[in-house]
């Protein structure tokens, strides 16, 4: 098996993500925009961290850097083991069936042909798509596509899984089902999860720790551990109460910037 997006010799144990003084500046000179400033974050192996913040505060930028697709301008990012990334859009290849899309991830890791198909089918069954393994992306609903993408992420067998608003485009019911599924596979595979969302309740539903980010420039404004028993119910009173507290903090942050339409809830 080959490691692709991880540094040659991980300085940290498998599953840990450590950001020290990370900053990101896009452009240079008078065009320079500081998108992320002086961000420290230490994620424990197997921890589920949700990153919540308004639009444009640098959440995607942060995730992209953890996944190794962008380099930070300053500071260091250490990740223990391979990092997989799941996008808001499922980004399935339309000429491949569900199975073949999952197989591609296995193939690029050098898994041999005989084993690939079985493993891909098994993973699709795991995300409850057993009946649709031979359909192509356009024949699947949005939620089903996102589950194929989840199966593909699982196929990568990564130590760290970054998810950038993976459920943003789904309806509430489908999203609830995806919460259950994501929680299940996470409990099973025990990867470290970095989950970006706009939805504060979603963060409370899923995460061990919610990280709130503020904008201009992007930075972490608050972190809150969540020890509520799982599975948590999105519409339950404790989840709503915890979400209300976090929302208030975000609102205060926005108010301090005096930009009322800056955050949508």
């Amino acid at each position: 098996m080959t490691l692709t997006s991880s540094p040659p010799a991980p300085a940290v144990e498998r599953g840990r993500v450590r950001l020290k003084g990370v900053g990101k500046v896009f452009g240079s000179g008078s065009q320079a925009v500081t998108v992320l400033q002086d961000t420290d974050l230490d994620v424990r192996p197997g921890e589920f961290v949700a990153i919540v913040g308004g639009s444009g505060c640098g959440k995607s930028t942060l995730l992209t850097m953890v996944a190794g697709l962008e380099k930070p301008t300053s500071g260091t990012i250490e990740t223990g083991g391979k990092v997989a990334l799941m996008f808001q859009e499922a980004t399935l290849l339309p000429w491949l069936t569900a199975t073949q899309n999952v197989e591609l991830a296995l193939r690029l890791q050098g898994v041999d042909k005989a084993e690939r198909r079985d493993r891909a089918r098994h993973l699709l069954q795991r995300v409850r798509l057993g009946r649709y393994v031979d359909l192509r992306p356009h024949e699947l609903s949005g939620g089903m596509r996102q589950r194929v993408a989840l199966a593909r992420v699982l196929a990568q067998d990564a130590a760290v899984v970054c998810m950038d608003e993976p459920l943003g485009a789904l309806d509430a019911l489908t999203r609830d089902q995806m919460h259950d599924l994501i929680e299940d596979v996470w409990l099973e595979a025990r990867f470290t999860a970095l989950f970006v969302t706009h939805n504060v309740r979603e963060a409370v539903r899923l995460a061990d720790r919610a990280i709130l980010m503020g904008g201009r420039p992007g930075r972490i404004i608050h972190a809150e551990e969540n020890t509520m028993a799982r599975p948590r119910v999105m519409d339950s009173a404790p989840v709503a109460a915890a979400a209300a507290g976090l929302t208030q903090r975000l609102k205060d942050e926005v108010a301090s910037h005096d930009e009322s339409d800056y955050f949508d809830i």
Partner: peptide, 8 residues
């Protein structure tokens, strides 16, 4: 999961 899993 399946009841609403109608292909698009």
């Amino acid at each position: 999961l399946d009841p609403i899993d109608v292909p698009a």
